[in-house]
Structures are given as C-alpha cells and as structure tokens.
Amino acid sequence: MVDILLQQIANGLSVGMGYALVALGLTLIFGVLHVINFSHGETFMLGGLLTLIATTTLGLPYLAALPLAGLGGAVLGWGVNRIAVRPLLARRDGGADVLLATFAVSILIHQAVVMLWGPAPARIDGVPGTFELGPVVLTGQRLFVLAAGLALLVALEWMLRRTRFGVELRAVAQSQFAARVVGIDVDRVNGATFGIAAVVAALGGALLSPVILYSSSMGQVVIIKAFVVVVIGGMGSVSGAVACGLLVGLLEAVLGLVAGEGVATAVIYSLLLAMLLIRPQGLTGKRAR
C-alpha cells in the first residue's frame, strides 16, 4: 500500500507540475493586467495538439516539438491579447468584458480544433525509458516533466528578479499609473506578460500531453483546475500558484487512488468553494479591505 501511495505521489507531482505551469500564467496575467484570461486553458491544449502534429504528421522527435509548441503559444497569446484583451482594458467594465471576450475565444479555439482535427484523444510518445527510485517507477516522460518544469520556473524567477523587463513587470503589477509616470511602456509590458504566460502554458501542454493523453477538451478541464490552484494559492501570487499546483496534482492522484477519478475531481473543485468561503484571499494572499 505504501508503495502504491509513493508511486501516486510521484505521479501526482509530475501532473501537478503541469497544473503549476498553467496556473502560473493565469496568476501572472491577473497580477499584472488585473484580468482573467479564460482562454488560457486552450493555449495549454494547443501546446498538446502542436506536439501531436509535430510528432505524428511531421515525424519530428518529441524534443523538437517543444519549441514549436512554445512558438504556437506565443502566436496564440499575441492574437488573444490583440482581439480580446487590449481593446477592452480601458473600459469601465473592462474586467468583465475581458472575461466574456476570452470566454468566447476559448469556445472558438476549442470548436475550431474539434472541427478541423476531430475530438478523438490521441497518444503522444514522449521521452522513453523508465527510472526506478526504490519502490517508485517513473517514466522518462514524467521525470522530464518535473525537470523541464523546474527549469522553466527557475528561468521565470530569474527573469522576474534579475532582468530589466522583470523589474518593469513588477512595477506595472504594483501600479500601472506609477509605472506610466516613470516612463514604462505599460502596453508593451502587458503584451509581453501575456506572451510569456501563453508560452509557458503551451509548453505545459506539450510536456503533459504524453502523460495524460492529448484530447481536444484537455484545455477545458485544466482551466478549472488552474482556477482552483490560483484561488487556493492566492490570486496574483506566483509562488502560491507553483506550490498549490503541485499540491493539487498530488491530492488528485492520492484521492483518485482511494475514491476514484470522478470523486477526486469533484473534491478538488469543491476545495475552491471552500477556500472562497474560509479564506478568500488564498493561502499566501494578503487580506484585502
């Protein structure tokens, strides 16, 4: 029993890394632009789809598909920002309108993929091989997800802390007005934030799709889990998103073992409502008002 539990913990952590990468972009966009990009899950799905196309139709090796997925994510992020976010930000009801517009975009992307590619799930071959750590057996792909995800997180952290752009980004997050006063191009920072979030989400999809199977609805599922992660971790908190992403993946795997997948998902979703009731600012967030 302990062996199975340890195995599920290892599996859960790798899936949780994928959740963390999606939630990270969601929370980054919320922190900087103060809006919610509902189409963020579809970027994750697109990352998976591009990986599928690259490895099957184009016959590329899996690792070569990753940059392609990242590039696709960047293009999609740029488009979503131009169509559904930037023109609406200045409005009085900007937040609500962005939410609605990105919701529309997410349906559009999903429907387009279903119509052009079909709804059937597909298997993607990732990094081969297995590794044994005591009683736990990790596939090469799961290990790769953990390693690549960690590398991505470190790179992001370095960018936020050490680069000029990172400083600008954090300045805009604190106060758009003050950032503008000191000469920061807020539109550019907003756009770049959106792009980075999209690339990370697409890479998340490319990393996770060999583990969980690609399907056209994987974006719709992951976006709700990302909401759970972000609400528990505290809206706008990057470290909270990463920690809670791993935690949610872990919890899901362990609960799935005990109670079955459907119940596990329902319990995870319920955590969001419970959190909003008990501590709406999240585990790491400061109390507002």
């Binding site: 809006v35 919610i36 509902f38 937040g95 609500a96 939410l99 709700i224 909401f227 759970v228 609400v231 079955g260 459907g262 119940v263 998902t265 329902a266 979703y269 319920s270 969001l272 409502l273 909003l276 709406p280």
Partner: peptide, 24 residues
C-alpha cells in the same frame, strides 16, 4: 462578496461539480 471574476469561477466550478456528481 468578492466581486465579478470570482463569481464567474465559482459558478463554473459549481456546475462542473454537479455534473461530476450526476455522472458518478
């Protein structure tokens, strides 16, 4: 009491929970 975005998320999640309960 938290405002717009949270309401959207909470209703969506509630619907999904109920869908899962009904299915399982």
């Amino acid at each position: 009491r938290l405002g717009g975005a949270y309401f959207a998320i909470a209703t969506l999640t509630t619907a999904e929970i109920l869908r899962l309960v009904a299915a399982n």
